[in-house]
Simulated scan of single mutants.
Amino acid sequence: MSTSGRDRLDGRRALVTGGSRGAGRAVVERLREMGADVWTSARTMPDGHPRPDRFIEADTSTVAGVDTVAARVSVEGPLDVLVHVVGGSSTPPGGFAAAGEEHWLAELGLNLLGSVRLDRALLPAMVGAGSGAVVHVTSIQGVMPLHDATLPYAAAKAALRTYSKGLANEVAPRGVRVNAVSPGGIQTEAYEGFVDLLARGNDLTREQAKQTIFDSLGGVPLGRFATPEEVADLVGFLVSDRASSIVGAEYVIDGGTVPTV
């Protein structure tokens, strides 16, 4: 196979959850650039979405939402690529005592169980076809939890990391590769909005506000967060034939936030 061919996904079908904005949208665009026929799922389709015929409005944190997505994408046969980007946190600040039952259930549903259920629905066909690539987007909070408001999110992402590794070991002998991508901060529109809010609320410049965020993480040696496109490039590599022997790995993309040796 040619070098260029190993970078291509021509003729392959893909699904990206949480693909309407931020890193998810960048992953969708990257996989389409690589030649894949990409389905996208999110709770709401953005105005002017370029491929409404390939967009599924569904909440994959629920059983019904997963069933909706699985039924739509399965009509044309097994997927070749499955990327779970959907995730987030809505727990209020205040530490562990502020996280009630409803917050824990919501975070587990969104950040762990949605991926588990969708894998359970879609991977049997991939295994039956004897090929495929799956990526779970986890978080550096799986190993570096921030306790004030995102402890349930961090715990769910840590569980997703462990689940991803175990699943990889099970399905690799049958031709399906599973890996994880663990981002730190990402320069999304939401992040930029938070920087503006922090700057206005504390009479800081945007650079000072960003430094405040970096300091809260113990520093970011690179001096910036990853862009959505950089996360998408990593995902694109992992689902391509260039990564054909990479199984059960977790790739950290955080600018050096988590100290490693």
Rank of each mutant, 00 (worst) to 15 (best):
T138V: 15
A172M: 05
V171L: 05
A121S: 11
D148H: 12
D148L: 12
A125M: 03
P124W: 07
N111Q: 12
S90F: 02
T138E: 07
L160S: 02
I140P: 01
Y163C: 07
P145N: 07
L146F: 15
A121W: 00
Q141N: 15
L146I: 14
L110H: 10
L151T: 02
M126G: 14
G142F: 08
S89C: 14
D119K: 03
R120C: 01
Y153T: 05
S90K: 08
R161H: 12
A106W: 00
A158G: 15
G128F: 11
A129N: 06
P93L: 12
W104E: 03
A129L: 11
A133K: 05
V143N: 05
F96W: 10
A129H: 04
R117P: 06
S164N: 01
L167K: 00
H136D: 14
E170G: 00
E101N: 07
A158N: 10
L113K: 00
L122G: 02
A98I: 01
L167D: 06
G128A: 14
E101L: 10
L118M: 09
S131T: 15
W104K: 13
S139L: 09
S115Y: 04
N169W: 09
S164Q: 01
M126N: 10
A154L: 06
V134I: 11
A154S: 15
G142M: 04
V171S: 02
T138C: 10
A133Y: 08
D119G: 06
P93G: 11
G109M: 09
T162M: 13
N111D: 15
